[in-house]
């Protein structure tokens, strides 16, 4: 018990966990029937797109970078898959793979420019966001496309007689993979580079390689997000990804990963995604107009960061005064 308590207090995601529990309780009070399996499945499906986007962003924030281009990649892969996918399993797999490659390529371009020319990640990915978004418009000038319904049903398939959706599996897979990944060499190196890249480099860590990994991972996950969006929304949009940078950053930051790098992780991000998604539901349950959702999401983002910044300042002052 004590170990759990210690682990919780140490966890950078403690604010997110508390919020999650609080929102969960609120949900149960406001809408007692809501916690059915089918409702959870539905919510999970609605959250996967953001989950992938936020996971990708987390990798980059962990090394102390930032990636705005995920918005472009999501739009691009969403449009591309919606236009070119045929109603044939081979095509679905091929197109999805092509999308992942596009995401990886975008990440590689970001990583290369940031490593080679030492330009701020912000402005580089800002530019590549627009390049990606532009290509999306060229592929699909207007919302639409032709998504095979088999693709939708494949990715929203429910196992065990409709009890468990693929989306829930995806959440679990992401969590398990992360538990594994953060113990690998690259996983630890991500933290090392984000916390102190000079020291990491002096110890023989290949810093550019680690940075490249993070940006490519971000691109790949953004692509997955775009492809999944194609399936759940069953349509493509050249602006499909536009809002995802904001939301992903919000989810990651609420989950306890800071912009300074080296702190946080995907577990927090996963909870952050859930918190962000639950807020809008709670507001609906509480009878607040959905027009208020955005405001609360914004406030949550600012307050979450505010808490961590202010506690850092207090800690520092304590140390100084002694």
């Amino acid at each position: 018990m004590k170990k759990i308590k210690d682990g919780f207090m140490k966890s950078p995601a403690k604010v997110a966990i508390l919020l999650f529990v609080l929102l969960e309780i609120l949900t149960v009070i406001l809408q007692p029937g809501a916690l059915s399996m089918s409702w959870i499945n539905l919510k999970a499906e609605a959250a996967v797109t953001l989950l992938f986007a936020a996971i990708g962003e987390t990798f980059v924030l962990l090394i102390g970078g930032i990636d705005l281009s995920i918005a472009g990649v999501i739009s691009l892969t969403n449009s591309f898959s919606a236009v070119y996918m045929q109603d044939h399993p081979g095509s679905m797999i091929l197109i999805s793979l092509v999308c992942v490659c596009m995401g990886a390529a975008m990440g590689a371009v970001n990583g290369f420019i940031i490593n080679r020319f030492r330009i701020q990640p912000f402005i580089v990915t800002f530019a590549t966001w627009y390049i990606g978004g532009g290509i999306a418009y060229l592929i699909l000038p207007k919302d639409g496309g032709n998504v095979p319904s088999a693709f939708t049903s494949a990715l929203t398939h429910r196992f065990f007689g409709g009890k468990l959706s693929i989306a829930i599996f995806l959440f679990v897979i992401c969590a398990v993979l992360w538990m594994w990944f953060k113990r690998t060499r690259t996983g630890i190196n991500l933290y090392a580079v984000g916390s102190n890249s000079k020291a990491a480099s002096l110890n023989g860590v290949n810093v550019p390689k680690v940075k490249m990994f993070a940006y490519v991972a971000s691109g790949v996950f953004a692509a997955l997000s775009g492809v999944y969006r194609t399936a759940v929304v069953a349509t493509g949009s050249p602006t499909g990804g536009e809002s995802f940078f904001n939301q992903a950053i919000a989810a990651v930051v609420i989950g306890g990963t800071l912009l300074t790098g080296g702190k946080g992780g995907q577990m927090g991000t996963i909870i952050g995604v859930l918190v962000l998604k639950m807020i809008s539901d709670i507001l609906v349950f509480a009878g607040v107009s959905s027009y208020w959702t955005t405001l609360f999401q914004g406030l949550l983002l600012v307050v979450a960061v505010l808490i961590s910044c202010v506690s850092e300042i207090i800690r520092e002052r304590k140390e100084l005064i002694g």
């Binding site: 933290y191 090392a192 984000g194 916390s195 102190n196 020291a199 860590v205 080296g262």
Partner: peptide, 24 residues
Amino acid sequence: SLVPELTIAQNLFLGFYETGKTRM
């Protein structure tokens, strides 16, 4: 050349971690 966010053990072996079959 220490990384503040990593643990003592992780710092001691930084850059030269040994991994097994699971790459962990």
